[in-house]
């Protein structure tokens, strides 16, 4: 069967196991009636069920919820939050500002990029250790190959204020014995003892906990993509409540020009000369 024939089979139809709405009647969510068998599910449980098709324990749900809460900072200086706030000061809509701020959170040096790399490192390293590899060697190789380990070290400060409260909750929920979490702390010990002096940061902790809860890399990506969300609306709202344009105004003098000197444009070949 060639390409167009493969496409022809799918014209005008949605074949799915994920769900559908029957307007005026009912809605199905991953094979369950949303308003009957799933009617008592909490929002986060439903969100994770949508990603994984699995249910999680109340203890696990409370930890995942806290993972989001403890990193939702209503600080409009943060780059992703600043997008939401700038939408507010520019009198754009809240949805546009927050959707853009969430999209911007898929960054390489923070957010989803780091989340995925941290999770991939921990799951791959755990497989290696289980197969008999030496953890110190694995850590050394990782640093050599990638010039760092996602989830360890922090650009502005070495400490991470989110780890202690998060670990207190994890211990209270009896979820501090997972293999990825243990591994994450063992990696930190190696990094602190060596010349690298790198502390574990929140990305490694969150990735380890979710790996211990059985989330695959791709599931973790979706589970974490709204981690910063709660901090964003306050940034938008305050900017929108203040007079327009008063958030982070930039005077001309802040532009530090480092380009070429001034010059004259030659006659443009595509545009006729202006009359007169």
């Amino acid at each position: 069967m060639n390409g167009p024939q493969l496409l022809e089979q799918q014209v005008g139809r949605l074949v799915t196991r994920m769900g559908a709405v029957f307007p005026g009647e009912r809605a199905v969510f991953r094979g369950e009636d949303l308003h009957a068998s799933l009617k008592d599910m909490g929002w986060l449980e439903l969100y994770l069920f949508g990603i994984t098709g699995r249910c999680f324990t109340p203890q696990q749900i409370s930890v995942v919820q806290a993972l989001w809460c403890y990193t939702s900072y209503p600080d409009a200086r943060l780059w992703n939050n600043r997008v939401a706030a700038l939408a507010g000061t520019a009198r754009s809509t809240g949805t546009l500002g927050i959707a853009a701020a969430l999209a911007v959170s898929e960054a390489q040096i923070y957010g989803r990029g780091v989340d995925l790399r941290a999770s991939e490192f921990l799951t791959r390293t755990r497989t290696g250790v289980d197969a008999g590899a030496d953890l110190k060697e694995l850590v050394r190789d990782e640093i050599k190959q990638r010039r760092g380990i996602a989830g360890y070290g922090r650009p502005i400060t070495s400490g991470d204020e989110r780890i202690a409260p998060m670990m207190a909750l994890v211990r209270a929920q009896g979820l501090d014995g997972g293999p990825h979490l243990r591994l994450a702390f063992e990696v930190e010990k190696i990094l602190l003892a060596g010349r690298w002096r790198l502390h574990m940061n929140y990305a490694a902790l969150a990735a380890a906990l979710c790996a211990d809860f059985g989330l695959s890399l791709r599931e973790y990506y979706f589970a974490s993509l709204m981690a910063f969300l709660a901090g964003m609306p306050p940034c938008y709202l305050e900017a929108a409540e203040k007079p327009e344009g008063q958030l982070f105004p930039l005077p001309c003098r802040v532009l530090s020009h480092e380009g070429v000197a001034r010059r004259r444009w030659r006659d443009a070949p595509l545009k006729p000369e202006a009359p007169g």
């Binding site: 001309c252 802040v254 532009l255 530090s256 020009h257």
Partner: peptide, 29 residues
């Protein structure tokens, strides 16, 4: 005061308003 580094854009402020550009140069033009 912090600054934004750029090789693309250069502005001169209006004499009475630091937040309005009197001229803008792009890559020197």
């Amino acid at each position: 005061e912090e600054s934004i580094h750029t090789r693309i854009w250069q502005e001169e402020a209006e004499p009475d308003n630091a937040f309005a550009a009197a001229s803008c140069h792009c890559h020197g033009y």
